[in-house]
Design a binder for these strands. Sequence first.
DNA 1: TACGATACCTACCACATGGTAAGCTGTCAA
DNA 2: TTGACAGCTTACCATGTGGTAGGTATCGTA
Lengths: 198, 198
Amino acid sequence: MTTSTRQQFVLQAKKLFAQRGFYGTSIATIANALGLTKQALLHYFGSKEKLYGEVLLQISSGLLTESERTLKADHQATERLSDLVIAHYHLLMNDDDSARLIMRELLDNEQRAEKAGSWYLASYLNALVDTAMEIETIKHLGRAQALAFIYQLLGAAHYFAVSQPTLEQIFGRALSKQTRAGYERELRNLISGRLRPM
Amino acid sequence: MTTSTRQQFVLQAKKLFAQRGFYGTSIATIANALGLTKQALLHYFGSKEKLYGEVLLQISSGLLTESERTLKADHQATERLSDLVIAHYHLLMNDDDSARLIMRELLDNEQRAEKAGSWYLASYLNALVDTAMEIETIKHLGRAQALAFIYQLLGAAHYFAVSQPTLEQIFGRALSKQTRAGYERELRNLISGRLRPM
DNA sequence: TACGATACCTACCACATGGTAAGCTGTCAA
DNA sequence: TTGACAGCTTACCATGTGGTAGGTATCGTA
């Protein structure tokens, strides 16, 4: 199966935007990576911003549908929450371009309020907080506190996903690999530890 | 007390680099913000890269000395770890330019391996892991697992610090403020929950 | 008073950038 | 057979970029 040229542009752009950021990536670079000229790119997308928007859109809808799948499972709230976070973690680890791009979007959000950065996070966060509020240990603390808890878990996952190259640079291949191997378990420990009655 | 022009450049650059990233910020913009021309900037720093390096250096040494202060307290390892993480959290929240810039550095690390991104993290992480290894609950899991745990805490702090504008955009002023207010407590809950014997 | 250094400035440059205009080529429906 | 359109191309352009060269004004010091 051959991917359409248009889609190839989106994929290539995603990779490069994730690596070097929006300003650090020229449309010429993207196009040349596909053996085309930047005018071909402009032919499809009209402008750099629009291409970027398309990339964001695809990432967001991808994450959204992926997470909806996990949301359907009807375990206990405690388990479900744990599963959701872990699923999110794996998603980010398996698609580090997305992970990086979202993180960048988080940073740039003030400036170029593409606002597409909020989208997926918004609905996703709400779903997670709802789930957390079903749990006794959390419920009585109120929604703001539940959000804080959820956000810590996402942060723990996302930050790690984005840090792989740095960690390898600091600690070397061996230790960082080992850490990666045990990260999910540690994440579960963190969650279950917090959710046990105090 | 008046800050030297040179130092004003560093501060202004820090702010702009944090907001728009390295490529998104031109030296002309930085200089104009101080009512000077870019040649004045080049006079002091020679090149954009060097200015950036200086910014990173100051941030790193700032965080380093700040954290060393906290490291000296001779509580129990458990408390000390908690205090260290909380201190780090406050640091990032009070200096969000630093928080953002470091996060960007984490993302760009592969590319422009300024490597100054590792610096502070390296020694800091090691100190934290050492502390964690003094705790029974963690010790027997080994160093890699301890690192995972530590990294989750830092992620929880750093990710949140960097997300303020986005969160406000999603949840509005009221709830996000409330969440911010309870975040430290929740962070403590997370840590103590994990450190209790299973 | 002369000298050198510091702190800037104007002028300039080569090059990369995002984008426009216009054209060429193949496909496919009328 | 023609005409429209998709999918590109070359040519071109205005603007912004980091950086160089060379100047001027100010000031502490010999």
